[in-house]
Design a protein around this nucleic acid. Sequence first.
DNA 1: AGCTCTGTTATCTG
DNA 2: ACAGATAACAGAGC
Length: 263
Amino acid sequence: MPELAEVYFHAGKWKAWQGQSFSLLHVARNKRCCRSFDVSLGRKEFCDLPLTAGFTHGKRMLFQFGVTLFLEVHLGMTGSLRAEANWQELAHDHLVLKGGEVFLVFNDPRQFGRVALSHSQGIPTWWEELPPEPGSARFDFPHLQVLCRRRSKAVIKSFLLVQDSFPGIGNWMADEILWQARIDPRRRVGSLSSDELALLYKKVRYVSREAVKRIGSDYSDPPASWLFRHRWKDGGVCPKTGRPLVRETIGGRTTCWSPHWQL
DNA sequence: AGCTCTGTTATCTG
DNA sequence: ACAGATAACAGAGC
């Protein structure tokens, strides 16, 4: 289920074990999601190293072990992390770290996620140079204007899913933002009026931050007033208009929106 | 049985 | 060269 807030939630389960030392116990080297994982580096270096820090950026996670060893994790479509006292092996457990009385597990049935191990003197530069997250202070209105100018011909729904521009925003968040901003997902970015752009900005910020607040801490559902609660229900109805929601593929992704509300 | 899915990327097409 | 669209990846649930 991982978008911005879910990623934050999963990272928290591992981060809770900062200070504990870990060793590599198991890695499914033949699985697609482990193809970037250097097994020999893991076996040799990943031995009794303390979990020093954990970071998230958009849909990415980075865990630091010791001083120079870094584990990057992406959850793809179906990935999840867990921490448990005894490793009760489940189908699709692809990476397991053991430390004292706890096991850190990466599980991913569809294997669209990935894990990778690397050395770096301190936080890697590429991590520090990632573009601003939509909820961060650096993501100000002029920043959004620049992004829009650069892709004025793009369909707005697809635009919101580009991770270089909106790190962490995924399919349901994009639909939520457009619904709250009352913008038809099929519109072109360049067609937005300045009022619409201002409202879009507001909603990008609000949905990103509120999602982390709600889901990031305990995986609770977003507010009842959001589209989120209605979007996958058969015969789902727009909470604003009381009329049926529409589902259609836009930019290759199923999109849910409310005609008469989103213009 | 066939279609769906909260993601990314290589490969197309114009 | 470029942007946008599409197919492929792989499993589980309906």
